[in-house]
Amino acid sequence: MGQAPDLDPKTQFRELYVREYPSVFRSVRAMVLDSATAEDLTQEAFVRAYRAREKYRPSGPPGAWLHRIAVNVAISYLRRQKLSRIIAPKLLAGPYLGDYGRVEAKTVLERALARLSPKVRAAVVLHYYHGYTRDEVAKALGIPSGTVASRIAKAMAVMRVELVGSEQKLEAARSER
């Protein structure tokens, strides 16, 4: 968690917005795997947070509260995308490439992340990048704490397979030269 003092969303929302924007963006980016979409959804998440700021109860850090809103916004977006692909696949999107590997991954790690579901990607980023505890991740994702632990463990195992596979391919390519 950040060491900066907690800002009150009711009275210091603008400061909170500026401070938390990059971190919320990264969580959303992990879920949708696209920067432009992530920026738009991050802004949408802050709009919702701004509207709900009076209802904020300081049971946890405001960052976790913002992440919870952002995760919900991203999940709604992904559901809409999935629905639009089912309703009008040819009009609204290109060929269906599966649930998680739609966006072209740019790096090996992004490819490994793309093998996970959006919620699990969010859990990995919230836990290993933002440093949230499993309880905080559970609250943000709306799942039990024990489920977070098992999902993160499975995610790491899946990512490891992808990373090791990429390393082996790289080694093979090097040895051919």
């Binding site: 963006f25 990264r26 990995v124 980023v125 990048y129």
Partner: peptide
């Protein structure tokens, strides 16, 4: 993971 996520800048 940390290096990758840090590289995502809005």
């Amino acid at each position: 993971i940390q290096t990758e996520v840090s590289s995502w800048v809005p």
